[in-house]
Design a protein around this nucleic acid. Structure first.
Lengths: 367, 367
DNA sequence: TTGTAGGCGTTATCAA
DNA sequence: TTGATAACGCCTACAA
């Protein structure tokens, strides 16, 4: 009898299996499984015995084996461009919080916005049989074999921050168009007339939306579009630095930058060129962080609800995993203009230091 | 014949299994497995056939099944206090980079430095049979049953940033003592005499080391220790804010803060009290970030090699997983004092703006 | 209510 | 070199 054979290896210092528990409490594995999973009513007596054995042997189910049997890993894969980009940690945290609440774990990958790395990550995640994937898609299509594999494995994807309808229409994004629009309008109303843009890579949806918001705001404010004041970056510091040099040489009096990292590069460029913000140029940037309220220049920014973004994405994904087949949705989260001083707002309105509007710092970024 | 039975479900849109490939190429599963894993020389002909079938069916091995058979998941668990604390993203990124290079993935968990959450995370990771765990340990001991389980599963742990010998002596940390020492000496040499401290929770090793560095530097510089100038925080903004209010009311002329988040809180407090840095108090903080060079006050900081920390920890862990039984090591990485202006250095030495020392920003933080 | 046996997709041991 | 076949640890019809 093979099953008896199996039970004979409990002297070794290995984690107890369901067989060990069954043996110890003198019941079948079915019974053990039933009490572990609270299924299929088990008689009082047996249950007690099994529970005692579980405690005695310190039994914990092997989730790998369970996954193989159940075809569910309770793991979700998350691919971000770069967790070291300060935008993403809070998004990931939100996703992890939600995942955790629903009994899921997060397998994290970085793509550096490179298609090759992204494909490798997806393929690995599929092979590891994650139940679903959260993805901030890089610009280009997956290769056909990967698309095929995705189809076969048939797990849900939810896009984060950027849409990519070819893959899935489920996405959680922020209102980038409106955010950019608000930013530029604020610049204009602060009296800036020659407004420049350092944008993200036009190939990805959120960058494009921010470009459009910029353009439309310019038009709405009756400002002229000057091509040399508009530069495409890649969301990294280095590109902001280069763009900054190029842009500032034309002496715009206002600049909208599409993310924080490029803003850092821009400020570095300004520093090197001896230009000051907000005296020489007004600035509105995307992404807010708790510390931006305490350093100068006090950046006026468009805050995106990063934590909420991660939560919403994970929850949508988990609903899909649970079998929700309702129509695909792109959930758009509101952005929020946080006026501080980098457009010269406080400069014009009042010279007092108490005018800055981040008294609310305590309530916000302080987790 | 049962094996024939199995092969009869290829019309359904499921991912191909090794059986499907075996059937398609008319060989045994052993042969397929052999060519997939490049083991046990397979004849030219059969190999070609198998490879063709693999391509045709778009076969990828199910890593869950493989893990069950191999008892290895090629996954490592990583538990950090909070990925949204800007210190950790770069550490995680380093770990992920190294893991990735060695064919491992990262399962990420947040503990919020709470023992309960940490225990829950460890238990889950063990149940998911990760091959090893990277852990920034919270202060207290695991409960006995968990310790028992760890022993049974017998997987390696490597501690990150904080030692905790009761669990394991393998750790990768930074030279916190020296960093704090350098920070305080710099403050003293900038002419500060009444130096305060906002430290981390004394219960964790790195915070303690920073306290000791602070004390010894005070002594070495012949400065008096004033108990009311020393406050314990928890590495979060909120605690820095509270500590800042308490501390600044005693009007120290120099402050050393043990991490960036508490520095943000401190600056907020200073703002609220109408005190300025570096005019009213000098400041040296831990953790450097690429953007600290472009905002004012230009913080003098002690940079910790975060990325390298993650890499070293993951690589040590992976060596342990691979069976390296050599003596436990705690690898200590050097910190680096980055002098900028928040101690009044530039103020005293020169009033020019070009004196700041972060011309190297381009080379450093720009990934 | 409880037990038996087969399946999940691989790897690995033995024979052939 | 290849092919059966038994693990790996769990779940779950189907039986009893």
């Amino acid at each position: 009898m093979a099953s008896l054979e199996k039970m004979r290896r409990n002297k070794t210092t290995k984690a107890a299996s369901i067989y060990d528990v069954a043996h110890e409490s003198d019941v079948s594995v079915f019974t053990v499984s039933a009490v572990v999973n609270h299924k299929s009513h088990v008689g009082e007596k047996l249950r007690k015995r099994v529970e005692a054995a579980i405690r005695k042997l310190n039994y914990r189910p092997n989730l790998i084996a369970r996954s193989l049997a159940n075809q569910r890993t309770h793991t979700i894969g998350m691919i971000v461009p770069d967790i070291a980009n300060p935008f993403f940690p809070m998004v990931v945290r939100g996703a992890e919080d939600a995942a955790q609440r629903h009994g899921y774990n997060l397998l994290l990958c970085n793509s550096d916005d490179s298609l090759a790395k992204e494909e490798a990550a997806v393929e690995l995640l599929l092979s590891k049989r994650v139940d679903g994937i959260l993805l901030t898609k890089a610009a280009e299509d997956f290769r056909p074999s990967l698309r095929q594999m995705i189809k076969e494995v048939n797990i849900p994807f939810v896009l984060v921050m950027r849409t990519y309808p070819k893959l899935t229409k489920d996405a959680v994004i922020t209102d980038d168009y409106q955010g950019a629009y608000d930013a530029v309008c604020h610049l204009a109303r602060s009296g800036r007339r020659r407004i420049g843009l350092i944008g993200g890579p036009r190939k990805v949806s959120n960058a494009l939306a921010r470009w459009e918001g910029f353009h439309d705001a310019l038009k709405a404010e009756g400002l002229r579009f000057e091509p040399e004041l508009v530069i495409e970056g890649d969301y990294r510091i280095e590109s902001g630095l280069r763009a900054g040099h190029a842009l500032l040489s034309h002496r715009p009096d206002g600049i909208y930058v599409a993310n924080h990292l490029m803003t850092v590069g821009l400020l570095q460029a300004a520093e090197e060129m001896g230009l000051r913000c907000p005296e020489d140029f007004g600035l509105v940037s995307f992404d807010d962080y708790p510390w931006l309220g305490v350093f100068r220049p006090r950046l006026t920014t468009v805050e995106l609800p990063k934590h909420q973004l991660g939560i919403a994405a994970a929850e949508l994904l988990i609903r899909r995993i649970a079998g929700d087949r309702s129509e695909a949705v792109v959930k758009k989260l509101q952005s929020e203009l946080r006026v501080r001083e980098s457009c010269g707002f406080a400069l014009h309105v009042s010279r007092g230091r108490s005018e800055n509007s981040d008294r609310s710092l305590e309530a916000k970024g302080l987790r």
